[in-house]
């Protein structure tokens, strides 16, 4: 059971959120036509042991998308920001 401190709703249980994935990947520019960059964006992921940035969705709460700093080893969550305010 992870507990996440949502910037809008406060400390909430993991069950209210849905996990999406890696928040470190950056979507190529809309007009980018090089398939290699798109393949990289869609399919290539690191699988870090330790701290990681992830997208989570407060789907049963405020419906905000969040960027979490989470330790994949210990499940600690050190930071949680609104995706709309996170530095890209």
């Amino acid at each position: 059971m992870i507990r996440i401190h949502c910037p809008i709703c406060g400390q909430r249980s993991e069950t209210e959120f849905s996990y999406y994935g890696d928040a470190t990947v950056k979507r190529p520019d809309e007009h980018e036509t090089d398939p290699a960059l798109w393949v990289d964006y869609v399919f290539t992921r690191d699988n870090p042991r330790g701290w990681h940035r992830e997208y989570w969705h407060h789907v049963q709460g405020c419906r905000q998308w969040l960027v979490l700093e989470r330790n994949t080893l210990t499940h600690e969550v050190s930071a949680c920001h609104l995706a709309s305010e996170a530095s890209s």
């Binding site: 999406y20 928040a23 969705h57 789907v59 419906r63 998308w65 995706a83 709309s84 996170a86 890209s88």
Partner: peptide, 13 residues
């Protein structure tokens, strides 16, 4: 809906 929200709150801010 969730996918739209994600795009509008991240890549398509």
């Amino acid at each position: 809906l969730a996918d739209f929200e994600r795009r509008l709150q991240s890549d398509w801010r």
